[in-house]
Design a protein around this nucleic acid. Structure first.
Length: 289
DNA sequence: GTACAGGCAGTAT
DNA sequence: ATACTGCCTGTA
């Protein structure tokens, strides 16, 4: 039987650059999901086995968004020939649902750097401020809470390799702890309103806000535009924004205009389109991470 | 030594 | 509304 878009491939999704604290150990994938360690094993028949420590109810459905109506999503995106082709090419690629606070800190750290560096920073943060747990004889560290990070000094944060991002991480932590930033409210709010709230945080701009909205706050219309997506838009969607995009960084006004246009074009599941395009661009460039 | 890597904020025009 | 700048850190 041919694989259909309905199937999902956890390893492909884990390796698509949307999550950072995952690693392969003895052929099994382990990932940090807040306080939990997630274990993903694919056996020879390719059947998938997921477990969580401590156990989390229906973690497979939760993390790999199996509650999404993928048929409807695929159908809605298939009007675009490019994305339609990518959906068929990268069978099983899914968005992954992340813990909001881990997601926010991850993408604040992701600003202006590369994936190996992001992984290094986040691992150092978990090691310094997280809780040690053992799974299958291997030591892991849970993701620190906002309160843990808020108590840290800038020096300590910088010692995790955060550099100038340390201030942004600390201020985000302070906002969460003070209740000034409430993820439950942002989940309930509309995309535009929740985005405006996130943009108030020091160190959070358009791209990071859209990542947090898409990956952790259930805003599937969010379409994060980074350098890879800018290149893709310049190559395949030049009609959407009639301007020279090339490799230049977009200004915030350009970002808003492109974002609005592309969300109208792809519809309420634009974020899924972004994921396929992003993965394709990086594959094309030969990126492993 | 230089360039570069998955942005952002601040400032000037 | 856009252009320009500096920024931690590590790797090629």
């Amino acid at each position: 039987m041919q694989p259909s878009p309905q199937s999902f491939d956890p390893v492909l999704s884990i390796n698509s650059g949307q999550v950072f604290l995952w690693e392969k150990y003895n052929g099994i994938w382990y990932g940090v999901y807040g306080e939990h360690i997630i274990k993903v094993r694919k056996d020879k028949e390719q059947s998938i086995e997921l477990s969580s420590f401590p156990e989390m109810q229906s973690c497979e459905e939760k993390i790999f968004r199996l509650d999404d109506n993928i048929n409807e999503i695929v159908q809605q995106l298939s009007h675009d020939p490019f994305v339609d082709r990518l959906i068929k090419k990268y069978t099983g690629l899914r968005l992954m649902r992340q813990e909001p606070h881990q997601c926010l800190f991850s993408f604040v750290c992701a600003s202006n750097t590369n994936i190996p560096m992001i992984r290094r920073m986040l691992y150092a943060l978990t090691k310094k401020f997280g809780r040690e747990v053992q799974v299958d004889g291997k030591i892991f560290f849970t993701f620190p809470s906002a309160s843990d990070i808020s108590k840290a000094t800038l020096i300590e944060l910088k010692s995790c390799g955060l550099g100038y991002r340390a201030g942004a991480v600390k201020s985000a932590a302070d906002w969460i702890v003070s209740g000034r930033l409430d993820f439950d409210l942002l989940k309930k709010g509309r995309y535009e309103e929740s985005k405006l709230e996130l943009l108030k945080i020091y160190g959070v701009g358009n791209k990071i806000a859209d990542c947090v909205l898409l990956f952790s706050l259930e805003k599937l219309e969010a379409f994060p535009i980074d350098i890879w997506i800018t290149r893709a838009l310049a190559n395949h969607y030049n009609w959407l924004y009639n301007n020279k995009l090339k490799d230049k960084a977009v200004t915030s006004y350009q970002y808003a205009a492109i974002s609005k246009c592309i969300r109208e074009y792809f519809g309420k599941y634009a974020g899924y389109a972004q994921q396929y395009i992003y993965y394709h661009m990086r594959q094309d460039a030969g990126k492993k991470w």
